[in-house]
Simulated assay, not measured.
Amino acid sequence: MDNDSHPDRTERLIRALIAATVVMASAALWWPVTANAARIKELASVQGVRSNPLVGYGLVVGLDGTGDQTTSTPFTAQSIAAMLQQMGVTVPPGASMQLKNVAAVLVTAQLPPFAQPGQTLDVNVSSLGNAKSLRGGTLIATPLKGADGQVYALAQGNLIVGGAGASAGGSKVQINHLSAGRVPEGATVERAVPTPLNQGEFLQLDLNANDFGTAREVAKAINTKMGEGIALALDGRVIRVRMPASPDARVSFMADIENLPIERAAPAARVVINARTGSIVVNQAVTLSSCAVAHGNLSVTISTTPVVSQPNPLSGGQTVAREKSDITINQAPGSLIQMPAGTQLVDVVKALNSLGATPQDLLAILQAIKAAGALNAELEVI
């Protein structure tokens, strides 16, 4: 083998790598970027295809002395008496039942769309009385009803409580919550809920947020994929879609359109404020006009010192303990700070950070900036 061929091959390899790098770099300039794209299934839901809440009242038995105190929760004793009567056991009227291993609970579940009889659901169990813990209990058969009063599922099973606790001699230790638990696959569906998927010629898609631009893009994507005139945007939230005739074709049709990518429009500028926790969330569309803000901290300090008033000797008075309070008010100087206009979120964050205010102070500052017309966003207090 000729040794001179090695440098030639190395040179050809380097040239090929350079050419590939140039091609990939140029492709990044013209290749469409879908960073803000989302699928239709993430932006809209089918009208009528939704889950339904179920609720029921039941009893948890088998507790280790941590159940309801029937003296203060009479409905637990009434429920036990009614259950025993259905089983053929008659409780004498006026009999006092001091039960500590039974708890009255509220059972909730979500019936998903297209759920059929025989399928299982997870249920949540929450105490209604003064039970100390539901740990180790068993939920007896509980009918779960919908908003129409019909029974759609039947729940029963052993509870899983993600906590533990112990108490003795006036001391108590508890980890997590003991008065609520969960029964995985604890309910069996007894009745199905009809859905409008196979009813009528049209199906309605409801956007999760009201936005005319997104509604137009969703209708445009469906018409491009399935044919002109298939989808029609009725307003900023509703898109009416013409569906095939057969149920199988409708399932295939929905499977095709729900994965269509949609270029999401820019969201409305909004600042969300939680007045209870002091949390502030600003989205990327918020802009700030030029303004000037002065902010000064005001603090009030109250200090109390115990003072003993001692009477003079042989005066016959009594020693009295009193308190002396000193109140101090400090107001820090607040200089006028000019906040430049910000057209990007990073500029708005820098401008707000320059004030050096706490989140609680920013609540009032943002409201004042909005009132002055310098905050180009909608304030929402939750």
Rank of each mutant, 00 (worst) to 15 (best):
N3I: 09
D4A: 13
S5Q: 04
V22I: 12
A28L: 03
P32F: 07
V33A: 02
T34N: 01
N36K: 01
E42W: 06
N52L: 13
N52T: 15
V55K: 02
V55S: 10
Q69M: 10
Q69G: 12
Q78S: 01
I80G: 04
I80N: 00
M83Q: 04
M87L: 11
G88Y: 08
G88M: 07
V91L: 02
V91S: 05
P92D: 14
G94H: 06
A95W: 11
S96M: 01
S96N: 05
N101A: 14
N101P: 10
A103E: 14
V105C: 02
L106C: 07
A109S: 12
A109H: 02
A109T: 07
Q110P: 06
P113T: 14
P113N: 15
A115F: 14
Q116L: 10
V125M: 05
S127H: 10
L128F: 15
N130E: 08
A131I: 12
S133K: 07
G136W: 00
G137F: 08
G137M: 07
L139C: 12
L144S: 09
V151G: 04
V151H: 05
V151E: 05
Y152V: 05
L154F: 09
L154D: 10
A166Y: 04
A166V: 08
K172S: 06
V173W: 12
L178G: 04
G181K: 00
R182N: 14
E190D: 03
P194L: 01
T195N: 02
N198C: 08
N198V: 08
N198L: 11
Q199M: 07
G200H: 08
E201V: 15
E201G: 14
E201K: 13
F202L: 01
A209W: 09
G213V: 10
G213E: 11
A215V: 08
V218R: 02
A219Q: 05
N223M: 12
T224P: 05
K225V: 03
E228W: 02
I230Y: 12
A231G: 06
A233P: 01
L234S: 07
G236P: 07
I239K: 00
P244L: 06
P244Q: 08
P247W: 08
P247Q: 10
D248N: 09
V251R: 06
A255E: 04
I257K: 07
N259W: 04
P261Y: 01
P261S: 02
A269C: 10
V272M: 10
T277D: 01
I280G: 03
L288M: 07
S289P: 02
V293D: 04
V293I: 11
V293L: 06
A294W: 11
H295Q: 08
L298D: 15
S299V: 15
V300R: 02
S303T: 15
V307W: 13
V307D: 14
V307A: 13
E323A: 12
I327K: 00
N330C: 04
A332D: 09
P333C: 11
G334F: 14
S335A: 14
S335C: 07
P340Y: 15
G342I: 10
T343V: 09
T343S: 14
V346T: 09
V346C: 01
V348A: 08
S354P: 09
S354M: 14
A357N: 11
P359Q: 01
Q360H: 11
L362R: 06
A372L: 07
G373A: 13
G373L: 11
L375T: 13
N376Q: 13
E380S: 14
V381Q: 07
